[in-house]
Amino acid sequence: MLAMFFWAFVIGGLICVIGQLMMDVGKLTPGHTLSTMVVVGAILSGFGLYEPLIDFAGAGATIPITSFGNSLVEGAMQESEKHGLVGVLTGMFEVTSSGISAAIIFGFIGAAVFKPKG
């Protein structure tokens, strides 16, 4: 378990460094960087490489935005095993829903509770 914390820190940190390099060296805006990382996560998931990384680094792999792409693919693949090609469309948000629904709900609550600054 302690090893898990260590690797979560290292892998999570490294993914963030990659993002920082894309922003600093690649001169991408944060929006471009995050979009690219999600796409990369989806592609890694397609090759079956993201799942072992989650096994290895736990939250170090599930917390960075790349895991969003992974869980989208994962949900689509799970559903497509059951329903074929149609499942690709319908299963997309099966696994991911929590991140987006949490963002929507807390975003709304936040907007209702907090006052804008400046």
Binding site: V38, L72, S80
Partner: peptide
């Protein structure tokens, strides 16, 4: 982009 990439990959 996440959804579209995931769609293509899947």
């Amino acid at each position: 982009f996440g959804v579209f990439a995931a769609f293509v990959v899947a």
